[in-house]
Design a binder for these strands. Structure first.
Length: 303
DNA sequence: GCCCAGGCCTTTC
DNA sequence: GAAAGGCATGGG
């Protein structure tokens, strides 16, 4: 049993304890700024599902799995021994989420303040780059339930079968295995016209130096990303924000267009101009605030 | 059946 | 450089 002091205000870990299950590790964090529901259901990731019986979420990333549950003041994370560092990086547990919420409110924009308060437990992830990249290529002109379905289908078709807490799941496939299949294969999986991008992108990603790409920011990073087939400005912004830690990237999709018009009184229809409106207004963490807005808008206007 | 979805690409003006 | 059309499929 190990316990540690919580540095004032910032760090999320309250205590860590030995797992009750063999080969497992459990951590707990303050739930105020780590809500499994907001973090997973805000649209930044797709491979998860809610387990009503256990009252929490199974979540899969790359070749790993974890279980998350909010229990009053704390959020509990369960993963396999050795995966703690992976998930603590993924959930960016050292990031100061409270400061971001305060920064959002500091603009004095009522709609953003409400969105930030509503979304305060939403943590921007540091995703596996290959998985995030291909996920958002599939996301275009698509709805979130179907994107999830397509990604689970991709993993079931080409990923490795694994087990976590008694449940079978499939890892995200290796890029080489994805690149080895052709367009027809992905059409058969129901990817539609996006099928042609998947093997071509996987091929290019195999040749990509991710650490060099990861050193880029802003326009430089975006320019590098849109060079891949099926990646335009919006998808590039999502990849930059969710997998490359570029918090200034501000994806503009139909939902953002809608809230720009309805809640910010915007008149522009050109997505590039809408992007500029928000990035110039909200600065280096605009992308985080975009997620507050997107999640709030979708959750409060279902249907 | 209908409209729409975390758009991108190509063609045309 | 801006605008329009095509694209696959299923969720609601």
């Amino acid at each position: 049993m190990e316990s540690r002091q919580t540095p004032p205000g910032k760090a999320l870990t309250i205590f860590r304890r030995c797992a009750t299950l063999q080969g497992m590790e459990e951590m707990t964090y303050k739930s105020e700024y780590f809500s499994p529901a907001a973090t997973l259901e805000c649209g930044q990731v797709f491979r998860f599902f809610r387990d009503e019986e256990r009252g929490g979420y199974f979540f899969f990333s790359a070749d790993k799995a974890c279980f998350l549950r909010e229990e009053g003041e704390v959020t509990r994370l369960v993963c396999e021994d050795g995966d703690r560092a992976y998930f603590e990086n993924l959930f960016d547990v050292n990031a100061d989420a409270a400061a971001l919420v305060e920064e959002a409110k500091s603009f004095g924009v009522p709609f953003l303040s409400r969105a930030a308060e509503f979304s305060k437990g939403l943590r921007i992830l540091r995703q596996d780059r290959a998985e995030c990249f291909l996920s958002f290529v599939l996301s275009q002109q698509n709805n979130i339930p179907r994107i999830r379905k397509m990604l689970f289908a991709l993993c079931a078709a080409l990923g490795g079968k694994k087990k976590f807490l008694g449940r079978d799941y499939f890892s995200f496939p290796a890029l080489s295995d994805i690149a080895a299949k052709d367009e027809a294969f992905y059409r058969a999986l129901g990817f539609g016209y996006r099928a042609k991008y998947i093997p071509r992108d996987a091929e290019m990603l195999l040749e990509t130096d991710f650490s060099a790409l990861g050193k880029l920011r802003g326009e430089g990073l975006k320019k590098a990303l849109v060079a891949y087939p099926g990646v335009g400005n919006k998808v590039a912004d999502c990849i930059a924000l969710f997998a490359f830690g570029d918090k200034s990237a501000f994806p503009v999709d139909t939902w953002v267009e809608r809230l720009y018009r309805e809640d910010f009184g915007g008149r522009e229809t050109d997505r590039a101009k809408i992007n500029r409106f928000f990035t110039e207004k909200f600065g280096e963490h605009a992308g985080v605030f975009q997620q507050y807005l997107f999640y709030y808008k979708r959750e409060t206007e279902r249907g």
